[in-house]
Amino acid sequence: MTTDTLHIVCPHCHTTNRVRVEQLSHQPDCGSCKAALFTGHPTALDEAAFDKHIARNHIPVLVDFWAPWCGPCRTMAPAYEAAAKQLEPRVRLAKVDTEAVPSLGGRFNIRSIPTLALYVNGREVARQAGAMGSADIVRWVSAKLPS
Results as ranks from 00 to 15, higher is better:
Ala79Tyr: 00
Ala100Ile: 01
Arg74Cys: 04
Pro68Leu: 10
Val101Tyr: 04
Lys144Cys: 14
Ala55Pro: 00
Ala126Trp: 03
Glu81Thr: 12
Gln86Ala: 15
Phe50Ser: 02
Asp4Ile: 00
Asp136Met: 10
Arg20Ser: 11
Ala143Cys: 01
Val120Phe: 08
Pro11Phe: 09
Glu81Leu: 13
His58Gly: 15
Glu81Phe: 03
Glu47Ile: 00
Pro102Ser: 07
Arg74Pro: 01
Thr3Phe: 13
Lys52Tyr: 00
Phe65Asp: 06
Cys30Arg: 03
His12Arg: 15
Trp69Ile: 11
Arg56Ser: 14
Lys144Met: 15
Ala129Asp: 10
Leu6Gln: 05
Lys52Met: 09
Lys34Ile: 11
Leu87Met: 07
Val138Ala: 05
Lys34Met: 12
Gln128Pro: 08
Ile54Asn: 00
Asp97Cys: 06
Val120Met: 06
Thr39Gly: 08
Arg127Asp: 04
Arg74His: 02
Val19Phe: 11
Leu104Tyr: 05
Pro28Asn: 05
Leu93Lys: 02
Met76Pro: 04
Ile113Lys: 07
Val96Met: 06
Ala79Phe: 03
Val141Phe: 03
Asp51Phe: 03
His58Phe: 07
Val141Tyr: 00
Trp140Leu: 04
Val19Gln: 08
Met132Lys: 12
Thr98Gln: 07
Thr16Met: 12
Ala83Phe: 06
Lys52Ala: 14
Pro60Gln: 01
Arg111Ile: 08
Val61Glu: 00
Ser142Leu: 08
Asn109Cys: 07
Lys34Cys: 08
Ser147Val: 12
His26Lys: 14
Gly133Pro: 02
Trp69Leu: 11
Gly40Cys: 07
Tyr119Ile: 08
Ala49Asn: 13
Arg107Lys: 15
Thr2Pro: 08
Ser103Ala: 15
Pro68Lys: 09
Arg18Met: 13
Val63Trp: 06
Leu118Ile: 06
Lys95Glu: 12
Ala55Glu: 06
Thr43Pro: 03
Ser134Trp: 02
Ile110Trp: 08
Ile113Asp: 04
Phe108Glu: 00
Asp97Ser: 12
Trp66Val: 07
Ser134Leu: 02
Ala77Asn: 03
Ser142Cys: 02
Arg90Ser: 13
Leu104Phe: 06
Tyr119Trp: 14
Leu116Trp: 05
Val101Cys: 06
Thr39Gln: 09
Tyr119Cys: 07
Asn17Lys: 13
Cys30Ala: 11
Leu45Glu: 00
Ser112Val: 13
Arg111Gly: 11
Asp29Leu: 14
Ala117Thr: 11
Ala35Trp: 09
Leu37Phe: 04
Met1Gln: 11
Val96Asn: 05
Cys13Gln: 12
Gly133Ser: 13
Ser134Pro: 03
Arg123Tyr: 02
Pro72Cys: 07
Asn57Val: 01
Val138Cys: 05
Arg127Ile: 09
Ala44Met: 08
Thr5Asn: 08
Arg20Asp: 12
Thr39Asn: 02
Thr43Met: 09
Lys95Phe: 06
Ala143Trp: 02
Ser32Asp: 15
Glu88Asn: 05
Tyr80Met: 09
Pro28Gly: 04
Glu99Val: 12
Thr15Arg: 14
His12Ile: 15
Gln23Asn: 12
Ala77Met: 08
Ala131Leu: 06
His41Phe: 10
Arg127Lys: 13
Val91Pro: 00
